[in-house]
Simulated assay, not measured.
Amino acid sequence: MKILQIIPTLGSGGAERFVVDLCNELTKQGHEVILCTMFDLKLNEDYAFFKKNLNSSIEHINLNKKLGFDRSLFLKIYRVIKKYKPQVVHSHLSTLNYVFLANILLNNKVKFIHTLHSDARKLIKNKGEYFLRKFIYNVKLVKPVCISEESLKSFEELYSTDSAKMIYNGRKLEESTGEIENYDKEKFNTIFLHVGRFDEAKNQINLVKAFNNILKEYPKILLLIIGEGDKKIKLELEKYTSDHIILLGRKTNVNEYMKVSQAFILPSIFEGMPISLIEAMSHGLIPIVSRVGGMKNMVENMKNGLLLDGHDIESIEKGLLDFLNLEGEIKEEMKRKVKIDFLEKYSIEKCVKQYIEVYGF
């Protein structure tokens, strides 16, 4: 099967990480994959963040999109489809606004799929975009795929249709190479890891404040934060950095830091279905997460992780303390359950199998 995947860039986000994994696994299973990015990856260092993770046998093309609305993309996408003749066009993120017209011109000769990587309501910028997407879905120009129960629910409520399919995001299980040595075990007995762009929605400022509050009672804990983003948030976070709270910046070897950590904390205000959480589960890290988006479906409180009561400092502090006060046997059982859940629900192999069914081949 020949599949054209379309995404704006290969930046450092979770959707981009997923698309690269999806392309690689489809190729591994014998399918021909072409990856199309709307922007030239050379324009911005971040645009090409995951490019090096792409299988070298996958052809990559870019459409040289201009900033803002670029009407030339309608014709460019149509020409790409005509040239490569894929059986399936699979779009992601904002590319749907440009892809749908090609299906009209091709008279439904190619199957079009679009994955919504978050709450459907969060993906709409204005009324015009809402009515456009409602038209696209209602006349079935594109088959929508949602990534979690919450994402699916938001889609059905917003567009008054049950046409969407739910497929959990998947992640490749990556083995550690031992690149990152264990942190000083005499100094630190518990390492918490947070991965996410610096953004108000990720709630990092409340996280570091909560962590700082419990350091006197638990002086042997460490918080590692991987990510970049909003400069104002970074400046605020730097006020709390110490030997116990470390900002690592962007990392391409996140799995190495997961290997040396015990817990993964994500106190987000809203989320879709974080790839970073799926990756953490693959390593057996115990999740401590907010009750938002797909996370509240992924984590069952006190079974395979801990759910926070809220997003405020006190709630995060309580979640950290609840984890630290767990008995060793309970932690080991949670770790075992987390790994089982990853293999049964969130592996890239299982995800690809479901997408192939949606592709219709």
Rank of each mutant, 00 (worst) to 15 (best):
E157C: 09
H283K: 15
L237D: 00
L237I: 03
C36A: 13
K335T: 13
F18T: 04
G14H: 13
R79V: 03
I77Y: 00
H244Y: 09
A15F: 13
L207W: 01
S290E: 05
G360Q: 12
D309E: 13
K172T: 12
R71A: 08
G319A: 10
L320C: 02
F188S: 09
T27K: 13
L343F: 14
Q29R: 15
S242R: 03
V139E: 09
K134F: 03
Q87T: 10
Y137W: 12
F135I: 10
K339Q: 15
T37R: 03
K125V: 10
E317H: 09
L324F: 02
E156G: 10
Q5W: 00
R291P: 06
K259Q: 12
L63G: 00
D341M: 06
I81L: 01
I124P: 08
V19M: 02
K82G: 11
V33K: 04
K187A: 11
K52P: 06
H31P: 05
T115I: 08
K234M: 11
I286V: 14
Y159K: 14
R79T: 05
H60Q: 07
Y183G: 06
L308G: 02
I6M: 00
T37G: 06
D309C: 12
E317M: 08
V260R: 01
G294F: 14
V195G: 03
E329A: 13
L223E: 02
I104M: 08
E179I: 11
E228I: 10
L26W: 03
G272E: 08
R121K: 15
L105T: 06
L307I: 13
V254P: 01
Y130S: 04
N189G: 07
L307Y: 03
N213Q: 11
N253T: 11
G328R: 01
E217L: 15
H92E: 07
N24D: 03
L75F: 13
N64L: 08
F270R: 12
I3M: 05
S118H: 15
F69N: 04
K52C: 08
Y183I: 13
E156K: 14
C351G: 02
R250K: 13
F131M: 11
I265A: 01
E332S: 10
D199I: 05
E349K: 06
Y257R: 00
R250H: 10
E349V: 10
L43I: 12
F100M: 08
E256Y: 04
N297M: 07
I34T: 10
K251C: 06
L343G: 08
K42E: 15
H90Y: 04
T27D: 06
N169Y: 15
V20W: 03
N138I: 09
N206G: 06
M334E: 03
V299Y: 00
M1L: 14
P219H: 02
T241A: 05
L173K: 14
Y359E: 06
I77Q: 01
D162R: 15
E332C: 09
L123G: 06
E327I: 04
K339M: 14
Y84H: 08
E200W: 14
V289S: 05
V352C: 02
E300V: 13
D322G: 07
S347P: 00
V139K: 05
F264G: 01
K209E: 15
S290I: 09
T9Q: 10
K51P: 04
Y78S: 09
G328M: 06
S282D: 08
L237A: 01
K318V: 07
T95I: 07
I81Q: 00
